[in-house]
């Protein structure tokens, strides 16, 4: 059994009079410590998959087992605990708190996690130790995303979920952010799941999951994924 299992999971949205199936009866198995890329066009259902796994949304049908525990049955408070302890999020739009400094944005996790990683250590890892007293608005997009990565990892989660983490960045900055992300994830033995349009990112993945129209079309395992530096950005 893998770290994550999707068993016949569907997510159906009611749009006006008709139903829209964002995910349709999917099965999926993800192993621990792997780097997974979910690829697919817009509206394929890849973000829905990520949101369900992150406990931001609940499936209409099916079970989502994480470490053997079905998170689809959890109530609001238990889901919050799950999000605090098991998953870390990195978003395309960073979602930092504008009124907190870099240090404080990362320190946020201390409010909800009993044994977080050192905030200073995380900031060193992402190369922002000299910017810790700045506010998000004083940072570039790439720097903000690195803060977001530091914050996600500071919780010491098992799984790191990234939704188009380089979507708002130019390719050079995007590559740099990915490098930081992958290095940290590997150093800290995290399972990373990235949702993206970007085919280049897929070249670095252990597993590529192709999603289309709410179905999983293909799961490709790569024995020799490329490193960030090997990818032609």
């Amino acid at each position: 059994m893998g770290l994550i299992e999707f068993k016949k999971v569907s997510r159906i949205y009611q749009v006006g009079d008709h139903e829209q199936k964002a995910l349709d009866n999917i099965d999926l198995d993800i192993e621990e410590g792997k780097f997974i890329v979910i690829l697919g066009p817009s509206g394929a259902g890849k973000s829905t998959l990520l949101n369900l796994l992150g406990g931001l949304d609940s499936p209409t049908n099916g079970e989502i087992l994480v470490e053997g525990k079905d998170i689809s049955k959890l109530d609001n408070n238990s889901l919050a605990d799950y999000r605090a302890s098991t998953v870390g999020f990195v978003f395309q739009s960073y979602n930092l708190i504008p009124t907190l400094t870099v240090f404080e944005n990362v320190s946020l996790v201390k409010e909800i996690v009993k044994d977080p990683l050192s905030v200073n250590e995380m900031l060193n890892e992402v190369g922002l130790e000299d910017h810790k007293d700045k506010f998000p608005s004083e940072l570039s997009g790439g720097e903000q995303q690195r803060v977001s990565i530091a914050r996600a990892l500071a919780k010491n989660p098992k799984i790191l979920l990234c939704d188009e983490p380089t979507g708002a960045l130019d390719s050079e900055t995007g590559a740099m952010v990915l490098k930081v992300l992958l290095n940290m994830a590997r150093n800290y033995h995290k399972t990373i799941i990235i949702v993206t349009h970007n085919q280049n990112i897929a070249k670095m993945a252990d597993t590529i999951i192709r999603v289309k129209s709410g179905h999983i079309r293909e799961v490709i395992k790569q024995d020799k994924p490329l490193s960030v530096d090997e990818v032609d950005w």
Binding site: Y82, R83, F89, N95, I97, L108
Partner: peptide, 16 residues
């Protein structure tokens, strides 16, 4: 709203 959503995603409970 966005900040509160972020806190919620990070794992803050409704009560907090």
């Amino acid at each position: 709203y966005r900040e509160l959503s972020t806190l919620k995603v990070v794992g803050f409970k409704d009560k907090k």
